[in-house]
Amino acid sequence: MSKIIEVSGLQKSFGELRAVQGVDFYVEEGSLFAFLGPNGAGKSTTIDMLTTQLKPDAGEATISGYKLGREDDGIRSSIGIVFQDSLLDPLLTVKENLFVRGSFYNLSRSELKAAVARAAATADVGDFLNRPYGKLSGGQRRRADIARALIHTPKVLFLDEPTTGLDPQTRKNVWTTIRQLQKEQGMTIFLTTHYMEEAAQADYIIIMDHGKVLAGGTPYELKERYATDLLKLMPHNAEELQAYLQSKALDYMIVSGVYHIPLKQTAHALPIVEGCGANIAGIEIVSGTMDDVFLNLTGTEVRS
């Protein structure tokens, strides 16, 4: 894949606060890219710079072939943004909101009508197109927000915590829309989220904190590097199991009679299980998660 976003040495300070300290990363075209970090990490500042809302102090970035700071109009024409807080008018219908948004792009009346129809169909807002935005449910509002961002058919869609506060079923529906945009239209999705199970669906993840990039990789690569699998054993004879684990110098913790043994790799469970033999009454292997990765890298729990 080609790189649709390239960032090099991007910096931004607010007085003595160095919010972004020379970050480097890239995003492949058509990918789902997750940008993670705790509050105050510098995520929002970075995104504000990439979307031309904030001028960098130093560094370079290219979005869809346009140079940040030199070709900002081109960047704005190629991106869509779904903010955490909606920009739509609660008194207008969804359709009216979309027409208002579309009027910013100097389209002819026929082009505007076609753009609204296309965005509404893509975001699946047809059932409530003529209802006031302020009367919609949380999930319907989020889909309307996505439709607003799609009016000009952007190449990159920035999603700032798109499912925060939504119930699980509504979150699933919003994610169906996001996945369709990526797969059917080849749109690049730039996502921030506090839900690690959502981040785990990404093609590539960057984690930052204190204004710096801490790590990057696929979900699998990050779990391999920064998370630990866990082998849980329930023995017939606890003393015998303890003696075996101590003879192999294996770390373990006992929780309600179940022995928790950390594993660097899942395959390391095999010789342990074979060594315990018939003494095993129950067994479970728990894979490391993105929550573990986040905690190990940032030293803090995921929080909204």
Rank of each mutant, 00 (worst) to 15 (best):
A278E: 14
A19Y: 05
M187S: 02
Y220H: 14
I206D: 02
R171A: 06
A281C: 05
G288S: 03
N97H: 02
T289F: 03
L191R: 11
F128A: 00
P271G: 03
T52K: 06
A199F: 08
A202T: 04
A120K: 05
V20A: 13
V255A: 05
N173R: 15
H236T: 03
N39I: 01
N279Y: 13
I75W: 05
E28F: 12
T177K: 09
Q180I: 07
G186F: 12
G30I: 01
I283N: 04
L87K: 15
L295H: 06
P90I: 06
H210L: 14
G15I: 12
I81H: 02
G138W: 15
A227R: 00
A215H: 01
S31W: 06
S2M: 13
D209G: 12
T176V: 10
L245N: 09
R101G: 14
G9I: 04
E16N: 06
A249K: 14
T45V: 11
Y252P: 08
E184H: 14
D72N: 14
H260N: 07
Q140M: 15
E71R: 07
G186A: 04
K12L: 05
E28L: 11
N296F: 03
E184S: 09
T177E: 10
Y252F: 13
F104I: 07
D203Y: 01
Q169L: 15
M187H: 05
V273I: 15
E6V: 11
A58N: 15
